[in-house]
Amino acid sequence: MRLLKFILINLFFFGLLKAPGLFLGKPIPASIVSMYMFFIVITVLLVMTITDKGAKGLFAPIAALVEDPSKALIRNIVFVIVPVVAAFVVYMQSNDAFAPPVELRSAHPAPPAMVKAYGKTFDLATLENPYRRLAKEGPVAFSALVREGGEVYFKNCVFCHGPKLDGRGHYANALDPLPMPFSGNDTIAQLQESYVFWRVVKGGPGLPREGGPSISSMPSWEASLTEEEVWKVILFIYDYTGNTPRSWK
């Protein structure tokens, strides 16, 4: 029965590692799960084989299955099942060959210190949204700017980033990596406006090497939007999602 216990304990930990994916929608990557499970199985095995008695109890059913003449029927069944399971696993894995390969990608790579755009050089460390101060000084003018930013958004960005700004626009499913959602608190809420400015203006082509493989399909908007329009649309995406830009002050 120690064998059963061994299997159950491992299954328990396996379930624990799978739970975030099943119930919370945040799966632990398969690469990590297999690594974790490899060491969990070994540790459990070690703990259960410290004494000779324990080791014997654990391996006795297996030994009996192979050696005991009275278990010939079960043995034959097991000896059929095991290769079939192995074949099934191999089949499933070769099916996966159609999936795109696993890759390393940094979603928010470190920005350069300076960005050249619109014939100027912007210092990202000190760059601020010129309209941001209006939020306090002139709320009416500010909301007009936000509205204008919204217009820019729905003429240019909506197709990928979606009408709800959740990164699920019409084209989204054709793209890999997915367009960034702006809702939620883990994308633009973590970034300064200067960073967002850099990403909008330079897009996928302007990603540094650590952001690679640079397959982001975000266009570089430098040619089609003016500097003012970029700042306005940034106001809009923060305003609509209820986020505030990160600031170090």
Binding site: P29, A30, S31, I32, A99, V102, S106
Partner: peptide
């Protein structure tokens, strides 16, 4: 930096 399949990402 985790190794992710596209589905997981």
């Amino acid at each position: 930096t985790l190794i992710l399949t596209p589905t997981e990402a």
